[in-house]
Deep mutational scan, measured.
Amino acid sequence: ESETFDVELTKNVQGLGITIAGYIGDKKLEPSGIFVKSITKSSAVEHDGRIQIGDQIIAVDGTNLQGFTNQQAVEVLRHTGQTVLLTLMRRG
């Protein structure tokens, strides 16, 4: 069981404050995608409180990250504006 949710964030001096990890899993058993690996102290993400380590980032400002490499996803996140809309999925 999984839930998908949107989080809109405004960057602070730390930026968004997440590091991400790309993961290619076994299609049947484990998900592939871009996941939140860590959250920086005092960052926008930590202050917001809704995003957790292990959440999958589905889209950034409407750009679907399906099939993106870790590096491609980093580039998408790097080129966002001051306000960012993240679409995430959390597995229950």
Rank of each mutant, 00 (worst) to 15 (best):
L65H: 01
L88G: 04
A73C: 10
Q66M: 11
E75S: 08
S32N: 06
G49L: 03
T87W: 00
A21K: 11
F5S: 02
L16Y: 06
L88E: 00
K28P: 13
Y23M: 14
S43V: 11
S42V: 06
V76S: 08
I57Q: 02
G92Y: 11
T87D: 00
N64R: 10
A73G: 05
G17Y: 00
V36A: 01
T4R: 07
Q52L: 07
Q14Y: 11
Q14D: 14
I39G: 04
I53W: 00
K11C: 08
D61R: 01
G49K: 06
E46M: 08
G22Y: 15
Q52M: 10
E3I: 15
I18R: 01
Q72Y: 05
R90P: 04
G25H: 14
M89L: 13
I57K: 03
L9F: 09
A44L: 08
Q56W: 05
S32P: 10
A21C: 12
I57E: 03
I24G: 15
E8I: 12
T83L: 04
L85A: 13
R50N: 07
D26R: 09
E75K: 10
L85S: 14
L85Q: 13
G15I: 03
E8G: 06
M89V: 12
K28Y: 11
Q71M: 10
V60T: 02
Q66W: 07
G81K: 10
N12L: 04
R78G: 11
L9H: 00
A44G: 06
T80L: 00
T83I: 07
E1T: 12
V76H: 09
D61P: 00
S38V: 00
L65Y: 00
I24H: 15
T87M: 01
K27C: 14
T69R: 04
I24D: 15
G25P: 10
T40Q: 14
T4D: 05
T80E: 01
S2T: 12
V45P: 06
V60G: 00
T69G: 06
L88K: 00
K41Y: 04
G62I: 00
T69C: 05
L9Q: 05
L16T: 04
T87G: 04
G15Q: 08
D48T: 06
L29Q: 14
T63P: 00
R90W: 01
Q82Y: 04
N70H: 14
G92M: 11
T10G: 04
Q52R: 13
I34E: 01
G17T: 05
I53A: 10
G33A: 07
F5D: 02
V45C: 14
G92W: 10
F68N: 06
N70T: 15
Q66A: 14
G62F: 00
E8C: 12
D26G: 11
F5A: 05
N70G: 10
L16P: 03
E46V: 05
H47N: 15
A21V: 09
K37I: 04
N12V: 05
A73K: 05
M89C: 10
S2L: 12
N12M: 06
I20P: 04
L77H: 02
K41P: 14
Q71S: 11
E8Y: 12
G33D: 13
Q71R: 12
K28L: 10
G22C: 14
F35I: 13
T80Y: 01
G17D: 01
A44K: 07
D26N: 14
G17V: 03
E8V: 12
Q71A: 14
G62D: 04
T63E: 12
G92C: 10
K37L: 03
K28T: 13
K37T: 08
I39K: 05
T4C: 09
I53K: 08
N70K: 15
V45I: 08
F35G: 03
S38I: 00
F5N: 03
A73H: 01
Q66V: 09
I18F: 15
K27H: 12
S43G: 14
I51D: 00
Q52D: 06
H47V: 15
Q52P: 01
L77D: 04
L85W: 10
I51G: 04
K41Q: 12
A59G: 11
R90T: 02
V45W: 06
K41W: 03
A73P: 01
T83C: 06
Q72R: 09
I18Q: 04
Q66D: 13
Q56S: 03
T10H: 13
L29T: 14
K28F: 10
H79T: 15
K27T: 11
G92T: 14
V13K: 15
E1P: 06
R78Y: 06
K41C: 05
G25C: 15
V7F: 04
S42R: 13
I20G: 03
E46Y: 14
Q72E: 13
Y23G: 15
E1A: 09
G49N: 07
G25K: 09
S43F: 07
I34P: 05
S38P: 00
E8Q: 14
Y23V: 14
